[in-house]
Simulated scan of single mutants.
Amino acid sequence: MNRDQFLDALAVLARRFEETEGAVGISQEEARALLELFDAGAINAGQLPLPFEEATRGSRVTLTPERAAGAIGAGEAVEAASLAVIEQTGAVPAIALNAPSQQRVNVAHAAMEAFDADVRSLAQDITRGAVRGQDWHSEMIVKIRQHLLQQAQLGKGSPLTPAELDRLQGAMEEQAQFLKRFADEVAVRNELAESAEQVAERRLRREGREVTEEAVEELAEDLRGRAMTEDEIAARARQYKGSSYRAFWEKSEEQVENDDVIIRYIAIDDSGTCLPCSTAEDEGPYLPTRGPMPGAVCLGGGHCRCVRRREVNPEVADSLR
């Protein structure tokens, strides 16, 4: 990442800080301090994310066909065995693609849980210094791309065609752009924490204040608290499976050939159900592929477990057309 790219990342994060009243991003003062460190050569480039062009376009985000894994033992449960193959190879096994729709929903949910475990492990790695920021960013791109393909294939019930991959490509590029900004925030906030004493000293001198050990430590303590925790990183990372869950339902309903089929949005009725999902249920039914999709409309994003259920109802289908 060169200076212009780093400056762009800082500008976006500072703007987000103002827009969210400090909930996301970094302050202008923190951005200034980080740029000074960068100019002084005090920031390890390997800890910074991939440059924007490399992270959001090109081979890293290009969707390519993933062949279904070979058939698995007939005596094994479809859901459990399919998940094992997905975890080991990244490919959806043929037995899962050919399974009845409800079993594919179960496998989709299991794959979402596996994604959560993967990104939690990555969050643990970066907060403990086991991987560089750039490597964490690369692995997250791989996980998001793989999960999007898995869910789309499960929804369709067969491998995707080149044309279908092209239509899905926009979703992948959008997620890569969101991830780039997230990766920038993880990196710069961790850098603030690691360089807390240097940043504190520079701030005191710039403000014309006496640089004492006590004053430096007081400011440094606040800066150390700016590092994103494992829980914070994992929670935000889990949101990236929302677009994949949406792809599952869209591809599933694209296979509907019966004109008499309608779709009912089924919100999971518990304390975690959000208003948009409840509203989506109340405003239904819908024609296939129309209306709000789980994972997209939900305020919980990747946490959504709502479903869309098919129903044969000629009269209602006619009224919706």
Rank of each mutant, 00 (worst) to 15 (best):
M1Q: 01
D4R: 13
F6G: 05
F6E: 00
L7K: 07
V12F: 10
L13R: 06
A14T: 09
E21N: 11
L35M: 11
A45T: 13
L50Y: 02
T56D: 09
R57E: 08
S59L: 08
V61D: 03
V61F: 04
T64F: 07
P65N: 07
E66D: 04
I72V: 11
A74M: 13
E76T: 06
E79C: 13
A84Q: 10
E87F: 02
G90R: 00
V92D: 02
A99Q: 14
A108K: 12
A114F: 09
D116Q: 15
L122Q: 05
D135K: 07
R145Q: 07
H147A: 00
A152I: 04
L154K: 06
P159W: 09
T161H: 14
A163P: 12
L165V: 15
L165R: 03
R167E: 14
L168T: 09
G170F: 15
E174D: 15
Q175C: 02
R181C: 06
D184I: 05
V186E: 00
R189F: 04
A193M: 07
A193P: 01
S195M: 07
R206F: 07
A215W: 03
E218Q: 11
G225T: 00
E232W: 04
E232F: 14
Q239D: 15
K241V: 06
S243M: 12
F248I: 15
K251P: 00
E254R: 11
N258Y: 06
I263E: 06
G272L: 14
P276W: 10
A280F: 04
E281M: 15
M293Q: 14
G295P: 06
G301H: 08
G301C: 08
R305N: 11
R310S: 13
R310N: 11
P314W: 05
V316R: 07
